[in-house]
């Protein structure tokens, strides 16, 4: 029984491997591994603000009875706040039993990038500052920045900020 289950999971992982959901934040195009994505909510619904959290945590939303926090990826990357419009989306990702909604400017597409086409990001000395990028994927002439979801959600980080605030 468990063997069959493992197989199914294995297969699922196989079919998801190398697939990325790409989206726009500002002018850059980012990608996250599709296995983390549980759903995409088009448009911005009512967000309930929560006090005492960093600015990039916009608050909480009701996702079919489940309350999940949402963060603005723009602000997370310390970029200027942008107004939300009808193309703005919330990508809900699920990591280690933690569900979080990511507010992005636009969802582009699902693409495959083979491991060979993913290179590590240039290090900080080369003037590269975004510590949430874990790799750079190449599709023809285009480049997608691949996000490190774990780091994006790291709560210790959030705790730190809370103390500073």
């Amino acid at each position: 029984m468990s063997e069959i289950l493992n197989e199914v999971v294995q297969q699922e992982e196989d079919t998801q491997k190398g697939k990325f959901l790409t989206f726009l934040v500002g002018k850059e195009e980012y990608g996250i591994e599709i296995k983390y994505v549980t759903e995409i909510i088009g448009g911005i619904q009512a967000i309930t603000e929560v006090p005492e959290v960093p600015e990039y945590v916009k608050g909480i939303i009701n996702l079919r009875g489940k309350i999940i926090p949402v963060m603005d990826v723009n602000l997370r990357f310390k970029k200027e706040a942008r107004d939300y419009n009808d193309r703005t989306c919330i990508i809900v990702i699920d990591i280690d039993e933690l569900s979080v909604g990511l507010i992005v400017d636009n969802v582009a597409e699902v693409i495959s990038i083979s491991d060979a086409d993913i290179v590590p990001p240039p290090d900080a000395r080369a003037g590269f500052h975004n510590r949430y990028i874990k790799g750079i994927g190449k599709i023809g002439n285009e480049v997608k920045l691949i996000l490190d979801c774990q780091r994006l959600l790291s709560t210790e980080n959030l705790e730190d900020l809370k103390y500073i605030n």
Binding site: V53, I60, N62, P69, E97, L98, V100, T155, L158, E159
Partner: peptide, 18 residues
């Protein structure tokens, strides 16, 4: 309902609801 784990504990707020 409990606040999401990601948010953690917030002084003055005990929980949330719909």
């Amino acid at each position: 309902k409990a606040l999401p784990k990601f948010i953690g504990k917030i002084a003055g707020i005990s929980a949330c609801t719909l």
